[in-house]
Design a protein around this nucleic acid. Structure first.
Lengths: 185, 185
DNA sequence: ACCTGAACACCGTTCAAGT
DNA sequence: ACCTGAACACCGTTCAAGT
């Protein structure tokens, strides 16, 4: 295995694999350094400490999620698009628990990169409603509402403790929201 | 200041104050021990390590939130009750950021205490819809949908980065969901 | 039963030194 | 410019010892 030169991109690549495999809490400077075959201090040339590392993962994860949702939304429209995005969002959380967990984290700093990534994620939802003929303001409100509902469901599903029919609950939430949004046009 | 005897309840009392003041990430064994005027190892008689300490905070915070929502729901009904609970939930997150953050955390373990606390929180929402005449299943679905929507909005509001009119977005989400739920009876 | 204090392993971070 | 390796501060945890 030829050793590639270290870079923020390479660190991110290993980091998302690690968090999805071992959990977000396993993301430490030492662990990533070990994975990359370098000393922990070598990372400081590419990442601004542990905070920077976590931020890097959050930015990468949000980007991956955005790509997933974009693909799901292509070729569909209206309620069908919302349903497809909901399924894609949930699929992402199930397949990439570590990356999903990184999107749940508190603010850290007012980072431009993470803020931009979050804006892009929201934009996917807004665009879907814009394509349905809603004006900019209404599309924004509808998109944000949808994102919040999906995000909230998944955040609670993963904290669970409640043994419930998640599938049915998720469908009910999306159904109710779509009905309500439809009645507000 | 007379020194009270140490106990899980006393630890919890100091811990919620600390997280609301310094942030959830500041919750460490050393910090709490320092606050209580004891050595870090003294805590192990009352709490099962750092994990146990975090869990204790999450249980306490969820209990406090449940109490808040219960009070807000009393004396109201229907849409008015949902709106009041939304406002109370948001107020709790703003006033107790550390406690709110503790409710955002990944599962830790299959703890009965935390699972029970989460069940009680959900129950408040379910009861409101039950009082509106919905059957058990429908009340459960409506309650869970409402909880998810509110939780998701607040989780995203606190990660922000997007400078937006949170007030209007929150109202729009609750309005849309209530309309949709109303149409599903 | 509960707390102290020493001890240990481990992690994040800095920095001089190498290349 | 990038990485090593030593060094330091700090934290979580254990355990023998005190009371």
């Amino acid at each position: 295995m030829a050793k590639r030169r270290l870079s923020p991109a390479l660190v991110a690549e290993y980091a998302v694999v690690l968090v999805d495999r071992d959990g977000f809490e396993a993301l430490t400077m030492s662990a990533i350094a070990g994975e990359l075959g370098v000393g922990p201090s070598a990372l400081y040339s590419h990442v601004e400490g542990l905070e920077g590392l976590r931020q890097l993962v959050a930015v990468t994860a949000t980007g991956n999620l955005t790509t997933s949702l974009n693909r799901a939304a292509i070729g569909t429209s209206g309620d069908e698009a919302v349903t497809a995005m909901g399924a894609a969002y949930r699929g992402f959380a199930l397949e990439h628990p570590g990356q999903f967990a990184s999107t749940l984290l508190p603010p850290r700093t007012e980072d431009d990169q993470l803020a931009m990534a979050n804006r892009s994620l929201l934009e996917v939802f807004v665009l879907v409603f814009g394509a349905m003929g809603l004006g900019a303001d209404q599309a924004h409100l509808a998109g944000r509402s949808t994102q919040c509902a999906i995000h909230g469901f998944l955040a609670l599903e993963f904290n669970a403790g409640t043994t419930a029919d998640h599938e049915a609950e998720f469908n009910h939430l999306l159904d109710a929201l779509q009905r309500g949004l439809g009645s507000m046009i």
